[in-house]
Design a protein around this nucleic acid. Sequence first.
DNA 1: GTCCAGAGCT
DNA 2: AGCTCCGGAC
Length: 357
Amino acid sequence: MLHVRVRSPSTLGFATARIQFNRMSKTRFSVKPIQSKTEIPTSDPDPNPGSENGSAAELRVFSRRKRVKRTEEVQKLQLEAKPISQKLAVLPDIEEFAYKKVNTSTNSSKPPANWEKVLDGIRKMRSSEDAPVDSMGCEKAGSSLPPKERRFAVLVSSLLSSQTKDHVNHGAIQRLLQNGLLSADSIDKADEATIKSLIYPVGFYTRKAGNLKKVANICLTKYDGDIPSSLEELLSLPGIGPKMAHLVMNVGWNDVQGICVDTHVHRICNRLGWVSRPGKKQKTSTPEQTREALQLWLPKEEWDPINPLLVGFGQTICTPLRPRCGLCSVSEFCPSAFKEASSPSSKSKKSGSNKKL
DNA sequence: GTCCAGAGCT
DNA sequence: AGCTCCGGAC
């Protein structure tokens, strides 16, 4: 057991990489040495976006496949990300720049009262609970593989894991791995029906099997079997939306460009009153709004850890339906504590509530 | 039967 | 903003 709490945004070296792999296991880090010595060189900040990205990234801006339609939110996200990735091609010290760039634009909003106490309290609750996310988060995918394959595994895991219980996703990944189908090349060659049967029963497996084939082909032809290294390029992949794009940037590239906001983070931040629509007191209505609002005040070192923290909290205590406020140690700070209906399914039919309590 | 959950389309 | 995709937990 080893408690590590290190964060050095400008110098992402060995230590950070190690933490990244194990960040799902709460404060417990297995002594398992870092898997591949080639993963991240000790001296250089981050080699992966460095070498081939310079000109290639620019080219891809033009060759980028046009999606039929993107939602406004995603388009906005892409615009947001563009300046950073353009700098990526030019600046050697990417991480540091990205950190400053994002961080300077954030301090415009005042943090909510007691947020540190709340976060601490949640951390404590989380360390005694075991949430599904702890044992099988998708970051674990292919952690023993070489960097490129590992990144691809992370991407695949992200694709499959949406709307799917973690253990189901884990099983699907294992089956793909056992059948040698966890690389862009092999998936591109494989039969879609085979993929489909292997990933079953992840949610929406038919669509995901198709997306997987498309993504593998894109990775193979445009990225030499690797995965895209920028937010906007990840977003252009079928089946990859804002939530997964940020997750892949965080986990796959070790590059935190934004908070990975899923419904748990979205729900909990709103319950806590941590986010609101710009200039208003209203709750945010989409995870993307939540992400933007949260990034306005949350210190950047919390951007990465807050997702697993709140997801686990949301799976065990601050559940979508009937949150267990009685078990929550920070309910005193929560404006929504004990406010939500405890009746099972009578949200829309108050009049005919025949099964109250 | 209800709810979960992210992406994408309308 | 609402619907669809999915199996499965409950």
